[in-house]
Design a binder for these strands. Structure first.
Lengths: 159, 159
DNA sequence: ATATTAATGAAAATAATTATCAATAAGGAA
DNA sequence: TTCCTTATTGATAATTATTTTCATTAATAT
C-alpha cells in the first residue's frame, strides 16, 4: 500500500517544481488540486477549508506560503477585489479560453466572470502592452480588467 | 479674524455635501484638499500624515470614515494594488484628461500611471461596457485596467 | 445664542496576513 | 532500502490595515 496519499500520476506542474528545486509535497499537491478543481475566486481561507477536507493536517500558514510560491512561479494569480481579502486563481495565460475579466458589485461583493467580448479587448491590450513596454521599459506579465458597479439585485433594490 | 481654518472660497464639492445633508467639516475639507493636491495613490496612512501636518487634531479613524463617505459619494475611487493597503484617488471621470490606467511592478511595488493610449482603450471599453450591462443587467460605474510585471529596475536587476 | 444631532477622536476590537521556531518529511546518497 | 541534509511544515505569536464603540465636540437650522 503506497500510503494514504499515493503519488498518483505525475502532474503537469511537477516539472516546474523540480526545475526550480522545490519539493513536491502533499500540501502543495492538494492546494494545486483544489485550485484546479474550483478555479474561481478562492480566498486563502476558502482554500484552507477545502484542503482541510482532504488533508486535515494542513495549516493556514502553509496555504499562504504555498500561494506565495505559486504566485512567484507564475502558476496562479492574485486578485484584490476590494473587500479586504485576496482571491487566487490558476493563471491560465491570456490566450487560453478560460481567461476572463471581472464585473464586481460594489454593494454586495458579487463577482461575475465574463469571457465574452474578451477577444477584442485582448487584441487592443496586446497593442497597448507593446507600446507601454517600450515607453516605460516595463516587462508586462499579466493584466486585469475589472468593471465596478451594481449587479442586478443591488441595482433594483436601491431604487 | 475668521478663525485659523477660515472658510475660504466655496469649493466645487460643497454643493454635493449639502445636497446629501452632509456637514462640511474641517477634517473633510482638509482631506479633500490633500487628495486634490497630491492626486495619486495615497494610502489612508499617507493621507492621515499629510492632513496631520495641516490639522494635527485629525484622527486616523476620521480619515477612514471620510474616505468611505467620499467613495460612496463617488468623489474618490479606491484601488487595491495587491500590497495589502488600499490607495485612494480623486475620481475624475473617464472622460477627464487625468483619467489613467496603471502599470504595477510586482517586485518593488512601484506604480506608474499612464494616460497615453488610453483613448483607444476607452472607446473599446465603452462598447464592452454597453454589451456587458445589457447581458448581465449590471450597472457599470467605473473600471480599472492594470498591467502587472517588472519595472525597468527590477527587470534588469533580475538578470 | 441655542438646541439638535451628525461628526469626531481615542482606544479597543477585528481580520487578514506574516514571522518565529522546533518538529517533520522529501529527495538524494550510500 | 536506510540514512542524511535541509526544505517544508504547522502551532503560535506578532503585525498591520481597517472597523467598532462611545463619550465628547462642533456644524447647522432655528
Amino acid at each position: 500500500m503506497p500510503g494514504r496519499w499515493g503519488r498518483g500520476p505525475a502532474k503537469w506542474w511537477h516539472g516546474e517544481f523540480r526545475g526550480c528545486g522545490y519539493r513536491i509535497t502533499i500540501p502543495r499537491q492538494i492546494i494545486l488540486q483544489v485550485l484546479d478543481e474550483s478555479k474561481e475566486h478562492l480566498s486563502a481561507e476558502d482554500i484552507y477549508l477545502k484542503v482541510h477536507n482532504i488533508y486535515p493536517a494542513i495549516g493556514l500558514t502553509t496555504v499562504y506560503r504555498t500561494l506565495d510560491l505559486l504566485i512567484n512561479m507564475g502558476l496562479i494569480f492574485k486578485f484584490d477585489f476590494g473587500d479586504g481579502r485576496a482571491r487566487y486563481e490558476l493563471s491560465r495565460g491570456p490566450k487560453e479560453p478560460s481567461h476572463h475579466h471581472h464585473l464586481i458589485c460594489t454593494n454586495c461583493g458579487r463577482i461575475i466572470d465574463y469571457t465574452d467580448f474578451v477577444d477584442e479587448e485582448l487584441e487592443l491590450l496586446k497593442k497597448t502592452e507593446k507600446k507601454l513596454s517600450k515607453k516605460y521599459s516595463f516587462e508586462i506579465k499579466n493584466h486585469t480588467i475589472q468593471f465596478y458597479g451594481l449587479c442586478e439585485k443591488c441595482s433594483t433594490s436601491k431604487e
